[in-house]
Amino acid sequence: MKRIMHKSKIHRAVVTEANLDYVGSITIDQDLLEAADILPNEKVQVVNNNNGQRLETYVIAGERGSGVICLNGAAARKAEIGDEVIIISYSCFDDKKAKQLNPKIVMVNDNNELM
């Protein structure tokens, strides 16, 4: 049996941009992606702590060290600049691995810098 499990997350990041004139996705600082083991084009869930909105999209790598968290396209309607979000990555694991899984949790400060 395979289980879909929480693999990693970027916890309490702050939205820095919302770009409606884009095809879609979320742009995330490359440093944060690496710390959370999230790859460009990987599917993620974005949970907005300010308004309760949830969405699924794919990741675009942003400029390293920029702190960028930018919702693009239709996703830009789900958050405002300054909103706090949790970005969650999931993966499929067999039963044995799922029971041993320790998800990576990346904590950031108000400037989306690693803590």
Rank of each mutant, 00 (worst) to 15 (best):
L101Y: 13
K96R: 08
D37Q: 08
A13V: 01
G24E: 11
G73C: 03
N49G: 04
D29I: 14
N102V: 12
L33P: 10
V106Y: 09
K99P: 05
Y22F: 13
T16V: 02
S25T: 12
A75H: 03
A76R: 11
S8C: 12
V47Y: 05
N111F: 08
M5W: 07
A13K: 03
D110R: 12
Q53D: 15
L20S: 04
V46T: 08
G52E: 07
C70N: 15
K104H: 03
N41C: 08
E63Q: 09
A13M: 06
K99M: 05
N112L: 07
T27S: 09
A75D: 14
I26T: 07
Y22E: 02
Q100H: 07
R3E: 06
V85R: 00
V14H: 00
K43F: 01
A61K: 15
I87R: 06
I10A: 02
D37A: 12
D83N: 09
L101H: 10
V47N: 06
Q45F: 04
A36M: 14
E17T: 10
Q45P: 01
N72C: 11
T27W: 05
I4H: 10
K104V: 09
D94Y: 13
D110N: 11
L33N: 06
K7C: 05
L39N: 09
V14L: 00
L71P: 05
R77G: 01
R12W: 08
N111W: 09
S66Y: 13
I105K: 04
D21W: 02
